[in-house]
Design a protein around this nucleic acid. Structure first.
Lengths: 165, 165
DNA sequence: TAAAAATATTAGTCATAACTAAAAATCAGG
DNA sequence: CCTGATTTTTAGTTATGACTAATATTTTTA
């Protein structure tokens, strides 16, 4: 049994390979935000989404239609946006993933651009990775000693390896 | 001084905000691969890239032109592809980042789909995050007892939190 | 060195998810 | 209840990075 050569793909290649059923990063962002906003009233609206995601309303309308076609939300023209059970589960997961990632980076000592870093990364964290990172976060919170040692280590390491910057 | 409300953007929103000068994930993949392949002969060719990135040659030609316009490589039609100094530095960084990320996930115990996970994630790891993750990897390698503890912890945690799966 | 094979380019298409401008629907106040 | 303001939709445009088909160039080989 010869080891098959390791295959590489471009970022776009992986997106395409994921197929039509996979959610795109933008779809994930919308679901996550709909979930956030729905916690207030049980629903959200086109304009709220547009404002909170910093996009224009027409972009929201289009995306809502797409998510509707996938049965992730209920919607009628000019109406309210409600997540279906399926959409709710996904939204909740995306929010969890977001929060774990934020906690992870935060524990490691990332402070600058934390929000941006989390939002940029989150979509690309597979479920497998989400699980191990969750474990690491829990471990670090349960073992403050580990974290303390790491913080000392990090300081010297960054200085040595990357200089002042 | 009131705290400005936390702003959210879609994945595409961040891409657009990054501006015209930023490299896209695909550009990064190409540079990383050109760097890899160039270590053999000092150069690479359109077909080699197409094969190794699993894309068609015309896609490579287009991308090469774009990277040429940014002075990241030297190229003449039908000729060899050489990275410029600027391109070399970037390619090297992307490869480092790739390897660190792989090591990180590997240490945490990710085995399934490791290659896919790394390639999917790497483009979205900011330089700041690269630095702290590098520190964490080094720390864990220097402190195998922590790693061992984590492995025990992880086993129970995953069982508890996520069940068998 | 001429023909065949391999390699690379050009030209044109597609989907995604943004945008703007303009039209349509809904809602609120008098 | 109708008019104006707000909200939402429709329609059409853009850039990215894939693709295929056809063409052009370079390299190999007979």
């Amino acid at each position: 049994m010869t080891k098959r050569k390791e295959q590489f793909y471009t970022a776009r290649g992986y997106e395409i390979a994921a197929g039509e059923n996979a959610l795109t990063p933008s779809m994930e962002d919308y679901l996550e935000m709909i979930y956030r906003l729905s916690r207030v009233n049980g629903y959200t609206r086109v304009n709220d989404l547009a404002e909170n995601l910093n996009v224009q309303p027409p972009s929201v309308t289009r995306m809502i239609q797409k998510l509707y076609d996938r049965s992730l939300l209920d919607y009628e023209k000019y109406g309210m946006i409600h997540l279906t059970d399926k959409g709710t589960k996904l939204g909740e997961y995306f929010l969890d993933r977001h929060n774990i990632l934020r906690e992870f980076l935060s524990l490691l000592g990332v402070t600058d651009d934390l929000q941006r870093d989390v939002e940029t990364l989150e979509h690309y964290v597979s479920y497998n990775n989400f699980k191990v990172i969750s474990a690491l976060v829990a471990f670090m919170k349960d073992n403050p000693h580990f974290l303390q040692e790491f913080k000392k280590y990090r300081k010297d390491f960054l200085q040595m390896e990357f200089g002042k910057e």
